[in-house]
Amino acid sequence: MAIPDLNNFLKSFFTAHHCSLLLDQDGVLTIQLTEEMDRALMNRPFYWHYMKKMGHSGEPMQLTLITNPNKRDDEGEWIHFGSPRLQQIIGYLQQQEKYTKLFQKVNPTVNTALYPWLVTNIKVSYRGKYKRDELFSIGLNLINGTMKSDMMKILDSIPLHTTISDFCYTLSPLVKLKSGYRRIEAVVDQYIENQNHEWASEALEELQTEIELLKYFYTSDNDNEQMEKEIKEINERYQPRITYQVINGGLFYLTSEIV
């Protein structure tokens, strides 16, 4: 699992949203929500509508989340990887945290240039008889064209901030965002092209077989409409597809020393 510790994940999530933790003990977490978090998670739009209308500030709720399965009968919600609450939080993250612009934090004594990087996290889904996803994190230096894979891992060791540090200045990109993105996409295209697509051949084979069976089934039948519908369903089910979806990305200004 990419989220190794759910309790920590939740703590960071709520702290980053300025909520205070009232209790954090033994896998039980009580959080004082902010208005933003209450609106996002507690599903009570009428309460907030009413409060605002009356000119009140409203009172955000407290939420107790239990990650320790042995405590799941305690007062509060048991939260785990399948629970609706976690899906809600993840959905919120995916919807809200798509775009960014960040600066490397440095303490230079002389004027330091920061290089612009376009970073994209792209999910590629392969769908034939079944489905599988792959996640790429690619960074492109918009001055010299250097490209890095596993960019998120590299960024993990760099302190980043939403504002630029003193004595730093940014270089303007030589490569435009859009053409930068096209270069990244081309690399993914290339990667896909070089792969073995057995999953797709299998799916196509199945597609052919089922359509042949279907035609045999209908030889003595005149129900063309039904047959067309079923052919469509077979296509829908087996036609191999690949989709690209950018999970999130943004512009990062980094010093020249990054690996």
């Binding site: 989220i3 980053a16 996290n121 996803d133 939403t162 999970i247």
Partner: peptide, 21 residues
């Protein structure tokens, strides 16, 4: 725009929910 922390959390959440195989 997103802070680094939340940006990175969204990435890890995706890694968790995607189906690698």
């Amino acid at each position: 725009i997103s802070s680094w922390e939340l940006f990175s959390m969204a990435f890890h959440a995706e890694k968790t929910t995607m189906t690698p195989s």
